[in-house]
C-alpha cells in the first residue's frame, strides 16, 4: 500500500482547518494513485475526537502518537517523532499545512530525512503515468507558478497553503482505523522551552468567511474601516485589508490578504480603495465574485473584478449598507 501522510496540526483540542483541507486533497490524490491510502498523523494526548474527525474527513488510517510530551508544539520533539514514524512506515507522500509551525517543522523533518520539500503549494496532482506527485507553487511574489517534482527521494514532501484546498464535509459513516502508536520520546537535550504563550489579541475569521469586505490605502484611516465593518457584519462576513492599510497601522495584520497575508476564496470579495497590486490579487483571485470600488478607473483591480464601481468608497459603501438595511426592513414587514 502506498501511504499518503497528512500531518494534523492541532491548536489545543482542535485541528487547524488546513489539516482537513489537506485530508480532502489527499483523498483526491489517493483516488488517482492505485493501491494507496490516506493516513492522518495526530500527535498529542486526549485527541480521540480529532482522530475520529480525521476519519470522517477522509483518512483511511489515523496514526495517533499518544504522548504527554506532545501536547504542545515543541519543534525538536515533533521533528523527532515525525522522522521516526516516517522511517518506520515509509510513506510515499507527506503533506503538512504551510502555517508558520508547519513550515518550520517540515523544513526540519525533510532535512533530517534528506528528501525534497516543496513549500507553500497551491496545487497538487498525481501524474498518472509516473505515479509522481506534481506540486505547484507561486514564486516571485505570485508572478510565476512553478511545478515541482521529487522523482527519486521518499517521501515526496510538501507544505500546502491554508485556504486553497477544499475540505470534505465530515461524513460520520466513513470507516477507518485509529492506530495508537506506542512511542516513548528518548531523552534529549532541551533545545527550546516554551515559557509563555501569548494568544493574538484579535481573532479574525478572514480565511473562512463567505464575504470579505476589504479596505486599502483608499480607506484613509482606522475610522474608515468602521464603515466596512458595518457592511461586513450585515452580510455575515469579515473585513480584510491590503498591506498598505496594515502598514499604515490602521488595522491589525491579522486582516491582511495577499501574498504575505492570507489567501482567501470567499463567495464575495469587495475591494474598497485597493489598487490591486499583484501581491494582493494572488490572495483573492480564487474568490467567486470580486467587486471593486475605486476612484481611479485605471486601477488594476478593475482588471480582475467581476463588478466595478468607479466612485468614492466613503459614499458608496454606506449607500450599499443602507440599501441593504432598507431591503431587509421591507422583507421583515
Amino acid at each position: 500500500m502506498r501511504k499518503i501522510f497528512v500531518f494534523v496540526e492541532r491548536v489545543d483540542g482542535e485541528a487547524h482547518p488546513v489539516s482537513w483541507e489537506l485530508l480532502g486533497k489527499a483523498r483526491e490524490l489517493a483516488n488517482n494513485l492505485e493501491e494507496s491510502e490516506v493516513w492522518a498523523i495526530v500527535l498529542g494526548k486526549e485527541c480521540e475526537n480529532v482522530c475520529k474527525e480525521a476519519i470522517s474527513r477522509g483518512a483511511d488510517k489515523v496514526l495517533y502518537v499518544k504522548n504527554d510530551q506532545l501536547v504542545e508544539y515543541v519543534n525538536y520533539k515533533y521533528k523527532k517523532v515525525l522522522v521516526d514514524i516516517v522511517r518506520k512506515y515509509e510513506p510515499e507522500i507527506f503533506l503538512i499545512g504551510a502555517t508558520l509551525e508547519g513550515r518550520e517543522l517540515a523544513g526540519m523533518v525533510a532535512t533530517e530525512l534528506e528528501t525534497g520539500l516543496t513549500a507553500d503549494c497551491t496545487g497538487l496532482d498525481i501524474l498518472p503515468d509516473k505515479k509522481l506527485l506534481a506540486m505547484t507553487r507561486p514564486t516571485f511574489g505570485g508572478n510565476l507558478m512553478a511545478t515541482i517534482m521529487c522523482p527519486e527521494h521518499r517521501p515526496q514532501m510538501a507544505t500546502v497553503r491554508p485556504g486553497v484546498m477544499r475540505e470534505l464535509p465530515p461524513d460520520p459513516n466513513r470507516k477507518g482505523e485509529v492506530i495508537v502508536e506506542e512511542y516513548s520520546i528518548p531523552e534529549m537535550e532541551k533545545f527550546i522551552e516554551i515559557l509563555e504563550a501569548v494568544p493574538l489579541s484579535v481573532k479574525s475569521n478572514l480565511a473562512y468567511a463567505p464575504v470579505v469586505v476589504a479596505g486599502g490605502k483608499g480607506v484613509g484611516g482606522p475610522e474608515g474601516f468602521e464603515k466596512l465593518r458595518e457592511l461586513a457584519n450585515l452580510l455575515g462576513g469579515e473585513i480584510g485589508a491590503s498591506r498598505a492599510a496594515v502598514k499604515a497601522g490602521w488595522i491589525s495584520d491579522e486582516y491582511q490578504v495577499g501574498q504575505t497575508g492570507k489567501t482567501i476564496h470567499p463567495v464575495l470579495y469587495i475591494a474598497c480603495g485597493i489598487s490591486g497590486a499583484i501581491q494582493h490579487v494572488v490572495g483573492i483571485k480564487e474568490s467567486e465574485i470580486i467587486v471593486a470600488i475605486n476612484t481611479d478607473e485605471n486601477a488594476p483591480i478593475f482588471d480582475v473584478a467581476d463588478i466595478g464601481i468607479v466612485g468614492d468608497l466613503h459614499a458608496v459603501v454606506p449607500a450599499i449598507t443602507s440599501k441593504l438595511k432598507a431591503m431587509k426592513g421591507e422583507v421583515r414587514k
Binding site: 505570485g142 507558478m145 512553478a146 511545478t147 515541482i148 527519486e152 494572488v282 482588471d303
Partner: peptide
C-alpha cells in the same frame, strides 16, 4: 531531490 519541471505565468483572471 526536487526538480522544477515546469514554470508558467498564471492566467490572469
Amino acid at each position: 531531490p526536487t526538480r522544477v519541471v515546469n514554470t508558467n505565468i498564471p492566467p490572469a483572471r
